[in-house]
Amino acid sequence: MPPIDRLILEFDTALRSVVGGANAHRPTPGSEAGANTGLEVAERKHSAGLMRVNHVGEVCAQALYQSQKLVARNPDIQAMLDHSRQEEMDHLAWCETRLLELGSHTSYLNPLWYAGSFVIGLVAGLAGDKWSLGFVSETEKQVENHLESHLEKLPKEDQRSRAIVDQMRIDEIAHGQAAKNAGGANLPEPIQKIMQAMSKVMTTTAYKI
């Protein structure tokens, strides 16, 4: 693909991540369940907050995968990162659709989340492929834990959101394992702790804004 076409494609991906309009290549999980069947107003609001957090996580994932792919040394690793990014785009679209069904909105801070994650991804990528892949593996591990907690927090009646989150969890496990198998290094514990702290700030803020 000519460089100008790649630039346009990457810009389109960034724009869809930040302002909306992501396209999924797979059907939305849980589409057979009623959109808001049995949900009280407070439950719908709570589900929306959790799904907004998940949507922000996917905005960050797009930025991370894009930036890391740009500086990856190995073409096979670039292809792996791009494959994971495409599945994360499905997640982005699913969460966006679910938020609309719940009568809510995506985070107003999406441009900030995207920009910050893009810079972090570049730093991880420039450190070398093994550290970049290690960052992916650790990120996906933390996301897996976060999604498991959401399966406990989502209202039992919200079968559609629960189906989306569960499929996302399955995909994140596969992405993390792929990065590990490709040579990802274990990150030092202090870096893992910093990542957890940053994630806490993001999830707390995105739930409300």
Rank of each mutant, 00 (worst) to 15 (best):
Y65H: 07
L109I: 09
G30Y: 08
G21I: 04
Y114N: 01
D5K: 06
Q62K: 01
S104F: 10
A48E: 05
T97W: 02
G21A: 03
P111Q: 07
Q66V: 01
R6D: 13
R6C: 01
S31W: 13
L92E: 04
S104W: 11
R85D: 03
Y114W: 12
V56I: 09
L100I: 11
T13E: 14
N23S: 14
P111G: 09
H25P: 00
A61Q: 02
G49M: 14
H105K: 14
K69R: 15
S104D: 09
P27A: 12
N74S: 12
M51P: 06
I8T: 11
H55T: 10
E87G: 02
W94E: 00
L92V: 04
Q66A: 05
I8L: 08
N23H: 09
S47I: 05
K45M: 15
N74F: 00
S47Q: 05
D82S: 15
L50P: 12
E58T: 00
S84E: 02
M89L: 12
Q62M: 03
V71H: 02
E32W: 09
Q78D: 00
A35L: 15
L70W: 07
S67P: 01
V18K: 04
N110P: 10
N54T: 05
H105R: 15
V41D: 15
E58Q: 01
A72L: 08
D12F: 01
G21N: 03
I77G: 00
G38F: 11
E88S: 08
S17G: 11
E101L: 07
A72S: 14
Q68G: 00
G34Q: 12
L99I: 08
W94C: 00
